[in-house]
Amino acid sequence: MDIALIGFGSVGKGVVQVFSKKQNQLRQKYDLSFSFKGIFTSRGAFLDSNGLDLQSILNIKDLTAHSSWKNGLSFMESIDDLDVDLVIEVTPTNIEHGEPGKSHIISSIKKGCDVVTANKGPLVVAFDELAELCRRGGCILRYEGSVGGGLPVFNLVRETLQGNTIHSLRGILNGTSNFILTQMTYERTSFESALKTAQELGYAEADPAADVEGTDAASKTVILANGLFGMNKGIDDVYIQGITKVTPEAIELAGNENFLIKHIASIEDGQIEVAPRLIQKTSPLAVDGTLNVVSLQTDLAKEITIIGQGAGGEETASAILSDVVDIHLTRKAK
């Protein structure tokens, strides 16, 4: 399998590290041999038609000093000359227009490549368009890493819950907001103080709006609604309420009645929302810190809940790796 990787931030580097580390295991367990022909960054690209030496790229401090480096070269400029089977797209997310990831994915599918992405933007703004392009072109699109980091939500439904009808979904899809609410609950601090702690620990960005106002969780909920429920929804279809107005007093009152306040994403009866909600302290959704959780209500297996780290380079790379293996096995079976 010949691969191109677009994006070399924390997730992209995590992909290179994980694939380099797991190379022998993938060959022995799944008969999967791979070669990265191109790795594209915001400043240029590593290109080698014979396959890149991943470890040398990970070890080098000055990317431009690498023998395979092409300064200023973009994926869109290179796509016609790239001879790859699969494209991994992990550029930064933009949920307003989905670019540049949307163009990367569309161009890859039109070239006949399978695609794995952790980029929420294209899936939020153009899910049906991308799915239709894949249907027409005979390509496979996988996006496990776009929701919940390493949580295997889509793989679970596709590979383990076949035959089940998914009635509803509830979950916590943003680790930053969950950490803040956890701090407010157990440290009895204000929202502002908890946010500052989250920023100091690196859990929250300098501009935390997407996390605390709910748009990040909402975008993930849209992808779940479209990918699991076939709902063809966009971000404007989600009722969104952030956590900025949650007070220590409200949390304390909830605690006195054996409830927690959590930022809950839900999909039920055609409605999608992300908002602070009361949940029982014994609920499967009562996870703390930066953990994410997804709970599915099904007709046969009843309630299925998965918990794990919702972000991180290696965690998301794990999801990407599972998607690549899935595509390999699907192609091999045909």
Rank of each mutant, 00 (worst) to 15 (best):
L169I: 14
L169N: 03
I172N: 08
I172S: 10
N174Y: 02
N174P: 00
G175V: 07
G175I: 12
G175W: 12
G175P: 02
G175Q: 02
T176Y: 08
S177W: 04
S177G: 11
S177E: 12
F179P: 01
F179Y: 15
F179Q: 06
I180M: 01
L181Q: 03
L181T: 03
L181M: 07
T182N: 03
T182H: 03
Q183D: 12
Q183K: 14
T185D: 13
T185I: 05
T185V: 05
Y186V: 09
E187K: 15
E187W: 11
E187P: 00
E187A: 14
R188Q: 14
T189Q: 10
T189M: 07
T189R: 09
T189V: 15
S190E: 11
S190N: 11
S190A: 09
S190I: 10
F191C: 10
E192W: 01
E192G: 01
S193N: 04
S193Y: 02
S193L: 07
A194R: 08
K196R: 13
K196A: 03
K196S: 11
Q199C: 04
Q199K: 13
E200H: 03
E200A: 12
L201F: 13
G202P: 01
Y203K: 08
Y203F: 15
A204C: 02
A204K: 05
E205L: 12
E205Q: 06
E205P: 00
D207Y: 05
D207V: 12
P208I: 09
P208A: 14
A209D: 13
A210P: 00
A210R: 06
D211S: 15
V212K: 00
E213R: 05
E213I: 00
A217C: 03
A218F: 01
A218W: 00
S219V: 05
K220N: 09
T221Q: 05
V222F: 12
I223R: 15
I223G: 13
L224T: 08
A225R: 05
A225G: 15
A225S: 14
N226A: 11
N226E: 08
N226P: 06
N226Q: 11
G227S: 12
G227R: 09
L228D: 06
G230N: 14
G230H: 12
G230C: 11
M231S: 15
M231G: 10
M231C: 07
N232A: 15
N232L: 10
N232E: 15
N232G: 06
K233C: 09
K233F: 08
G234L: 10
G234V: 11
G234A: 06
I235P: 01
D236N: 11
D236E: 14
D237C: 14
D237W: 10
V238A: 04
V238M: 03
V238T: 05
I240M: 00
G242K: 00
G242F: 01
T244L: 04
T244D: 00
K245M: 04
V246N: 08
T247L: 08
T247S: 15
E249T: 13
E249H: 09
E249W: 06
I251Q: 07
I251L: 15
E252K: 13
E252P: 00
A254Q: 08
G255L: 13
G255T: 05
N256W: 01
N256Q: 15
N256E: 14
N256Y: 06
N258L: 07
N258R: 11
I261P: 01
I261N: 04
I261V: 09
K262G: 13
H263Q: 04
H263G: 04
H263F: 08
I264D: 06
I264Q: 03
I264W: 02
